[in-house]
């Protein structure tokens, strides 16, 4: 098998003195879709934020390797340039900056890092128009201030749209399904599915199994109290849907 795209080894992290991640091990190869499921407070979002480099979390032990680089030594922007993308659970509203300007700055930052020429406004626009269709949005959306006044569904579609434009190697979706009605969920899942490919991997973090009906994972991991307690195929998600997390949680506290 090829080298892993992402390799997490014994990752520990804490916030404000509380240990949240207590030894995560996870290996993801290109082309794979992994899902992490777990109850509230199990550390799902912490894992996503730690991978993206949020400074609020302190990594106390472990390593994360991606594309031959120790991710934990990189600034958030360097991680983006290496090819990591985090679709936020709560995308931030930034009045005063259009989605278009923001994305152009992002794309050019990544291109610069890779030693490519920056795109001018015309080339850029050309490139992103087709990506809009991917999430069923029209061009007017580009001129709106970033996420400002967006509905929950629009914000999540915007995250997927950004993902499509930035073309990451590894996309982490942090509860992208939360708060979405079934129509929005389909649009988001469709967008993700069309971005699946041999040279890209996904880590889909979710609380409920429903999203996984639309984004069918290759692997499912159960995260309880900061540890992955079980891994399996997509059928594991269905099992969790039926029986919940109670069995696993009961085992943890003892």
């Amino acid at each position: 098998m090829s080298n892993p795209l992402l390799e997490i080894r014994d990752l520990h992290a804490r916030v404000e003195g509380h240990e949240i991640l207590k030894g995560i091990n996870l290996t993801i190869h290109s082309g794979e879709v992994h899902s992490i499921m777990g109850p509230n407070g199990s550390g799902k979002s912490t894992l996503a934020q730690v991978l993206a480099g949020r400074e609020t979390y302190e990594v106390t032990a472990g390593e994360v390797w991606m594309e031959g680089k120790n991710l934990l030594e990189l600034d958030p922007e360097e991680r983006a340039c290496v090819g990591l993308f985090l679709a936020f659970q709560y995308p931030v509203e930034i009045p005063g900056v259009s989605t278009q300007y923001f994305l152009k700055a992002a794309v050019n930052a990544v291109r610069k890092y890779r030693g490519q020429d920056e795109l001018d406004a015309v080339d850029f626009l050309e490139r992103i128009k087709e990506k809009l269709a991917l999430v069923d949005m029209d061009e007017r959306f580009l001129n709106r201030a970033l996420n400002e006044g967006f509905s929950g569904g629009e914000k999540k579609r915007n995250e997927v749209f950004q993902m499509a434009v930035l073309e990451p190697r590894l996309a982490v979706l942090d509860e992208t399904d939360s708060g979405l009605d079934i129509d929005a969920l389909r649009i988001v899942a469709d967008g993700v599915n069309r971005l699946r490919g041999a040279d890209r991997a996904f880590l889909v973090i979710t609380h409920y199994q429903r999203l996984l009906n639309y984004i069918v994972p290759d692997f499912v991991h159960v995260l309880i109290d900061g540890r992955i307690v079980r891994s399996g195929g997509k059928e594991l998600a269905l099992e969790l849907e039926q029986h919940g997390y109670a069995n696993y949680e009961a085992g943890v506290g003892v």
């Binding site: 480099g53 922007e77 991680r79 340039c81 936020f88 923001f102 992002a106 930052a109 990544v110």
Partner: peptide, 8 residues
């Protein structure tokens, strides 16, 4: 953080 996570 949001902007930096996109490469800025």
């Amino acid at each position: 953080f949001y902007l930096r996570s996109r490469g800025l």
